[in-house]
Design a protein around this nucleic acid. Structure first.
Lengths: 179, 179
DNA sequence: TTCAGCATGTAATATGTTACATGATTAG
DNA sequence: CTAATCATGTAACATATTACATGCTGAA
């Protein structure tokens, strides 16, 4: 039930509506735990029943009502409980690696690899921009900010390694005549 | 439906029973697409109905009967079709990164990080042993072997980056007084 | 007037995990 | 005698994805 905790972390940082959360998940926290709005609404409902979050309705003029969720003390306690435990090994599920093993169509692989590379480059740029903007002086970081920065560093190294892998694949394919 | 294709790739390499596949998934191909035997049996049944695989019963003395699955021409065609398309971006789901963002208990994080690091080291060693054993001369590789080697290279770089990230986290935590 | 954005959800389907179930053989 | 390995699955539950549904505002 890790989406629960991702949402709790996000609500701990700041109260939000389901819609707001969905947009946050498209950006910051969703880089490490993607989720759609449908999923988020469902989990919010479940957590509200469990007493981990509470909601207040806000009227807005010219807009639909907004249901703002906030984390409760029980929710904070649950976060603590969860944070004290160990996280297991994360499953890697890579269609792309499976496709490499299949190795059916080198041209298609090369094409796919180039697209993936561009993707990694774009995301790396976004991460690096974030880092420069929000964490210009990493040595001074503490607590929550330190954690967020370390998570971002993980993202940066993931993208870099993705680019390197793509380059390795492209080099190997080119060396053997596929363009 | 990527488990389907992972199984097809595996059956293309060699026919196997559900049980055999489950063990393969614990080792080679499962590094990139983990799956339990329960899942595998379910997907095999579905693919047999679709005509992508076929099974033959083998009697064995002193052992339960073995149902050996093989890929059919339709299955091969499906693999081709799938291999020609592009793979989308892979979702990263990392409890650990979420936990870093929560940053509730630095001691617990340090402990967890050390455990993860040990895990990465072990898996890296396994990958490197495979590489030395099965692909001593990468430049000479072609076709299927080249693909498998490139997939393995991806695994190796993933583990290396995991170790580096853990070290970065531990350094940051130590620099601030958590052991 | 059409499309993007705001804001909320339900429903159906697909996929993954955990627990249960059976029964034989072989190694310790 | 006990546990592990071989071999097959079913069932219940949890989670994730895709499609559907509604309705308002503001900008092009």
């Amino acid at each position: 039930m890790a989406l629960d905790h991702a949402i709790l972390v996000s609500l701990h940082e700041r109260a939000a509506s389901g819609y707001d959360l969905a947009r946050r998940f498209d950006a910051s926290i969703g880089y490490f735990w993607p989720a759609s709005h449908q999923q988020i609404y469902r989990v919010l409902a479940r957590m509200q029943e469990a007493g981990w979050v509470e909601s207040t309705l806000q009227e807005q003029d010219g807009r639909p009502d907004k249901k703002t969720y906030a984390i409760t003390p029980d929710g904070e306690a649950e976060l603590d409980r969860w944070a004290a435990g160990a996280t297991g090994r994360e499953a890697i599920r890579s269609d792309f690696a499976v496709k490499l093993r299949a190795f059916r169509d080198p041209e298609a692989i090369a094409l796919d690899t180039r697209a993936r590379r561009a993707d990694h480059v774009a995301r790396l740029a976004a991460y690096e921009a974030s880092e420069a903007r929000f964490y210009p002086n990493p040595r001074a970081l503490e607590g929550n900010d330190l954690g967020s920065w370390l998570a971002l560093r993980g993202g940066i190294s993931t993208e870099r390694r993705g680019i390197e892998w793509c380059d390795e694949i492209l080099t190997a394919l080119e060396g053997r005549g596929s363009r």
